[in-house]
Design a protein around this nucleic acid. Sequence first.
DNA 1: GGCGTAGGTGCAATCGATTGCACTAATGCA
DNA 2: TGCATTAGTGCAATCGATTGCACCTACGCC
Lengths: 337, 337
Amino acid sequence: MRNRVTLADVAKAAGVNPATVSRSLNPATEAQVRKETARKIKKIAKDLGYTPNTVARGLRTRKSLTIGVVIPDLTNPIFPPIVRGIDSYLLPRGYSAMVVNTDGNKEIEQTLISSLMERQVDGLIVATGHTEGDLLSQYHERGVKVVMVNRESPGIPFPAVTSDDGAGISAIIEHLVGLGHSSILHLAGPSDSSTGILRSKTFTSECKRRGLLGKVIKNENYSIDDGQAAVDKLLDHGGKSFTAIVAGNDLLALGAYHSLRTHGLRCPEDVSVVGFNNMPFTADFQPPMTTVNAPHYDMGVEAARLLLSQIDGIDTAPVKVTLPVSLILRGSTARAL
Amino acid sequence: MRNRVTLADVAKAAGVNPATVSRSLNPATEAQVRKETARKIKKIAKDLGYTPNTVARGLRTRKSLTIGVVIPDLTNPIFPPIVRGIDSYLLPRGYSAMVVNTDGNKEIEQTLISSLMERQVDGLIVATGHTEGDLLSQYHERGVKVVMVNRESPGIPFPAVTSDDGAGISAIIEHLVGLGHSSILHLAGPSDSSTGILRSKTFTSECKRRGLLGKVIKNENYSIDDGQAAVDKLLDHGGKSFTAIVAGNDLLALGAYHSLRTHGLRCPEDVSVVGFNNMPFTADFQPPMTTVNAPHYDMGVEAARLLLSQIDGIDTAPVKVTLPVSLILRGSTARAL
DNA sequence: GGCGTAGGTGCAATCGATTGCACTAATGCA
DNA sequence: TGCATTAGTGCAATCGATTGCACCTACGCC
C-alpha cells in the first residue's frame, strides 16, 4: 500500500539498471553517472513519486540515521528544550531522534536502551546518568557511541555536556550572603546523579569557606513532592532554623514553596528560596522564582554535535563541555530579617 | 561493531538452518519447532548475545513497528503528557514513537512527515490539525493510517481523539455567570485549528443564548505573547470593557495575566481570567489559574489505541472519541464588581 | 504391511537499496 | 594506427530476517 515505487520501478521506467538509479539519486555518487542520464532519472523518479526506503538503505549501509535519546521524563520541563536542541542539530543532517522515558527506573532504562539498539540506532544521547554506570559501560565496551547530556557518567569516558553547576551554586550563595543570609538549607537532588552530587558538594564547600551555617537534606527525586515533603518534615519538627533555601532544582524549590505556604510562612519575607535550571514558567510562579539559568537548548545542540562528530569518527576523545550559567534574580529572595 | 551476532551465527552454532532459529525465537511460530530444538536454540542465542535486527525484520515484514507523532512544539506543556500517553500504550506492544515538531509551519510539517514515511512508519498520530488538510489528505489516499489527537482534521475521515471543548466552555460561562459577569472577552485560538474554532463557536453561542455581552479576539497562535499582545491592544485603546476573560488555552490566559499586570489591573479582583487545558504548573501561577482540565495523557493513550487497531485492521471506521473535561476552580476568578 | 498424514526442517526467494567488480566504448597519447 | 586510460553502466552479491514450499521421517490406521 505504501511506498509502492521502488528503485527498481524507476530503473525499469528509465530503461537502466537499478544501480544507475541509485547512483544518480545519491549526491555523493552522482558524479559517476553521465549528467544527462542523471537528469533524466531524477525526472522520472520525481514523476513516479519515488521515495527512498530508509529501512532498506539502513540494512545495506549499516546506518539507521537514527539517534536514541534517553531521558527520565518528558514532562519535566527542562527536557523538552534539550530534545528540541538535539532535533535542531540532527534534522538538517538527515538524522532523526527517538526519545524514550525511563522514569528513573533502571530496568525500564535497560529495556528501552536494548530496544533502541535493536533498532540499530547510530548513537545514544543519555540524560539519565547514574553514578553506577553498569548500564552504559557495556555499550561502551561494544563500541556504541554515547554522549551524556545534563548529567555525567562517572567512571565511563563518554563525552558529556553539562551546565556549570558549581558556578551556579556559588553565585546563589554569593547572592544570599549579600542579602544577609547565614543559615541556609540545601534541598539536594538525588545522590546518584552527578548534578545532585556536584551541586551539594559545592554548596557544602562554599558554606564552609564563608563560615555559613549550611544544612543539607537529600531527596530521592528531583520532584515537587520530594521538595515539599523534605521541608514539611523539617518545619513540622525542628521548626525554622534557616532563612533561605537553595534547592537542587526548580521542582524541589516549588515543593518548598508549597510547604512554606501550608506552614503559614511567606516567601521571600520569611524565607528566601532559590531554584536551579530556570525551567519554563518559573517567572510566573508566586512569587516569581529566583533561579539559575541553564542553557538547555544549547546543551541539546552541543550534545548532538558531539555525537555526530563521534559517529563520523572526527572526534574520538571524550570531550567534556561545560556551558555557562547565569543567576536570574526574581522575587523569591529578599534580605534576611 | 554492533550487533555482531546474527540469526545465521546462531544457526551455525546450533547446527540448524537460520529458518529454524527464526521460528524458534518468534513466539508466533515457535509451535512449528520441536520443543527441545527450540529450547536449545534459545539457550544458544542467549549465550551468544543475539539481538534481533529490527531493521532487517522490518524490511522483510513491511512493518517498522514505529509510529510517527507529529506535534507543534514539545515545549508547550500539554504535549509531553500526550506523548507519554502514546508511549505507554505503544511500548508494551513492541512499537516505538518517533516525535517531530512542526512549529506550526506547514512546509516543515510536510518535510517531517515525508521523512517519517521514508522511515516506513506504520502510522501517524497527528496533533497539528489544520483546517485545510492538504497535507494529510494525500496520505489518506495512499492508505496511510492516521489518527488525529487534540485537534481534528475537518473533511478528512481520520479517527480523532479530542476533549469535550464545548462542554468545557459551557462550564466556564456558567461559572462566570454565577459570579455575576456579563461582559466577557474571549481570547480565541487560531482559526485554522479545530480547537480554536470549536471553543470560540461555543463561546459565541453560549453568550447569545444567555444574553451576555461577548467579545471575541482572534489570535494567530496559542502563545503567551499573542495573549498578552491582544489584551494590551484592547487595554491601550478602548479601555476595559469586560470583567472576565475566557482564554482559548492556558498560554493565552497567562499572556492575559501579564497584560493585566502591566496595566495595573488585578486578577481576579478587577478581571477574572479562565484558561483551558489545565497544563502543568497552572496551579502555581499568580494567581492560581482557574481552567478546564483536559485529559491529555488519556488522549494520548486513546489515540495510540485507535491507531494500532487501525493498523491491525480491527477498527477501520473513522471513530471520533471525545473525552470529558472538568472545570478546575482556582484563584483567577471572582465575583464581578 | 502399505499408505496417508502430520510434524519438523531445510531450501531458497524475498524485502529495497548499495557497491565492488567487470565490461564496453570512447578518448588520449605517442 | 595501436594501446592504455577513463568514463559510464550493468551484474550480482550483500545486509539480516522471514516464510512459502518441498522434503523426509515417523507414526497411525486399516
